[in-house]
Amino acid sequence: TRVETATETAWISLVTALHLVLGLSAVLGLLLLRWQFPAHYRRLRHALW
């Protein structure tokens, strides 16, 4: 049971790290898009909202 718990903890930390990385890359990508294509971003936002 001790090994299982350790594996579970490792998986949880791995998944958390993955989610953090994905979230950060998504935010960075959005910022980059907004910085590179302001007109396109505004049009996209206008279409979405």
Rank of each mutant, 00 (worst) to 15 (best):
T1Q: 15
T1C: 09
T1P: 02
T1S: 10
R2D: 12
R2A: 13
R2K: 14
R2Y: 10
V3Q: 01
V3G: 02
V3T: 03
V3H: 00
V3F: 01
E4L: 07
E4G: 08
E4D: 12
T5E: 04
T5M: 03
T5F: 02
T5G: 02
T5P: 00
T5N: 03
A6Y: 00
A6C: 00
A6D: 01
T7K: 09
T7F: 03
T7D: 01
E8K: 00
E8H: 01
E8M: 00
E8I: 05
T9S: 09
T9C: 09
T9Y: 07
A10I: 07
A10V: 07
A10C: 06
A10D: 06
A10R: 05
W11Y: 14
W11H: 05
W11D: 00
I12A: 09
I12E: 08
S13G: 15
S13C: 14
S13W: 15
L14C: 05
L14P: 01
L14Y: 00
L14A: 05
L14H: 04
V15N: 13
V15S: 04
V15P: 05
V15G: 01
T16C: 14
T16H: 02
T16G: 05
T16Y: 07
A17R: 03
L18S: 08
L18P: 10
L18A: 06
L18F: 12
H19E: 08
H19Q: 01
H19V: 15
H19G: 15
H19P: 02
L20A: 12
V21E: 00
V21P: 00
L22N: 06
G23K: 04
L24D: 05
L24P: 07
L24G: 05
S25D: 01
S25L: 08
A26Q: 00
A26G: 09
A26Y: 07
A26M: 13
A26W: 06
V27G: 08
V27N: 03
V27K: 03
V27H: 02
L28N: 01
L28T: 02
G29S: 13
L30I: 10
L31W: 13
L31P: 05
L32V: 14
L32S: 09
L33R: 08
L33D: 05
L33M: 13
L33T: 04
R34L: 06
W35E: 07
W35F: 15
W35L: 15
W35Y: 15
Q36Y: 11
F37E: 02
F37V: 05
F37T: 07
F37G: 05
F37P: 00
F37W: 02
P38F: 13
P38A: 14
P38L: 11
A39M: 12
A39T: 13
A39R: 12
H40L: 12
H40Q: 11
H40D: 11
H40I: 07
H40S: 10
H40T: 09
Y41K: 06
Y41P: 04
R42V: 09
R42H: 07
R43C: 12
R43D: 04
R43G: 06
R43I: 11
L44Q: 04
L44K: 00
L44T: 08
L44S: 04
L44E: 02
R45A: 12
R45M: 04
H46G: 09
H46I: 09
H46E: 07
A47C: 05
A47L: 08
L48R: 06
L48W: 12
L48C: 07
W49V: 03
